[in-house]
Amino acid sequence: MIITKIRTLVANYSDLPVRSGYSVKMNDEEIALFKVTNGTVYAIENRSPHPKGGVLTEGLVSGEYVFCPVYDWKIALRDGKVQAPDEGQIKTYQVEVKDDNVYIII
């Protein structure tokens, strides 16, 4: 079985703010893009795993982590894992940056 991955243009790299969230909608999913200080772009589900949720593009970014704006959970942008003592995980997406284009690969 051959699995074909789809590459979708979602933003211009130069338009992404550093250390702030940028929301895009793809299929029926809301995805948060974060450009960290070293220039790496991460894409994660734009909702905290806490039962009451929280829009992660409204959270604070520190290094390669975003803090849920509702419950201050620390979430790794690299793998979507909530850091101890809290627990949980959110979906992450593969990102490709080429020239000034940011793609999500699904």
Rank of each mutant, 00 (worst) to 15 (best):
I2P: 09
I3E: 14
T4H: 09
I6K: 08
I6H: 09
R7C: 01
R7K: 15
L9P: 01
V10W: 06
A11V: 08
A11Y: 05
N12G: 13
S14V: 07
P17T: 11
R19I: 09
G21K: 11
Y22L: 11
Y22M: 10
S23I: 11
S23A: 14
V24N: 02
V24I: 15
K25C: 14
K25W: 06
M26V: 15
N27D: 12
N27F: 13
E30L: 13
I31K: 01
I31Q: 01
A32V: 15
L33T: 02
F34M: 07
V36K: 03
V36P: 03
N38K: 00
N38G: 01
N38E: 03
G39T: 09
G39K: 05
T40C: 08
V41C: 06
Y42R: 02
A43N: 02
A43W: 01
E45A: 12
N46F: 08
N46K: 07
N46S: 10
R47D: 10
R47K: 12
S48F: 03
S48D: 04
P49E: 01
P49W: 00
H50W: 00
H50K: 08
K52D: 00
G53T: 09
G54I: 14
G54S: 06
G54F: 08
G54P: 04
G54D: 02
V55W: 05
L56C: 09
T57H: 05
T57E: 14
E58T: 05
G59C: 13
L60Q: 10
L60H: 04
V61L: 11
V61W: 03
S62R: 14
S62Q: 15
G63V: 11
E64P: 05
Y65N: 00
V66Q: 01
F67T: 11
P69K: 15
Y71L: 07
Y71H: 15
W73T: 08
W73Y: 06
W73K: 14
K74F: 04
K74V: 11
A76C: 11
L77D: 02
L77N: 00
D79N: 10
D79K: 00
K81I: 12
K81S: 11
Q83P: 09
Q83M: 13
D86V: 01
G88H: 00
G88E: 00
Q89D: 07
Q89P: 07
I90K: 02
K91V: 12
K91N: 09
Y93N: 00
Y93D: 06
Q94F: 11
V95I: 12
V95F: 15
V95E: 04
V97Q: 10
K98E: 12
K98F: 13
K98I: 10
K98S: 08
N101R: 15
V102Q: 12
V102L: 14
V102T: 07
Y103A: 05
I104F: 08
I104D: 10
I104P: 02
I105F: 06
I106K: 14
I106Y: 14
I106G: 02
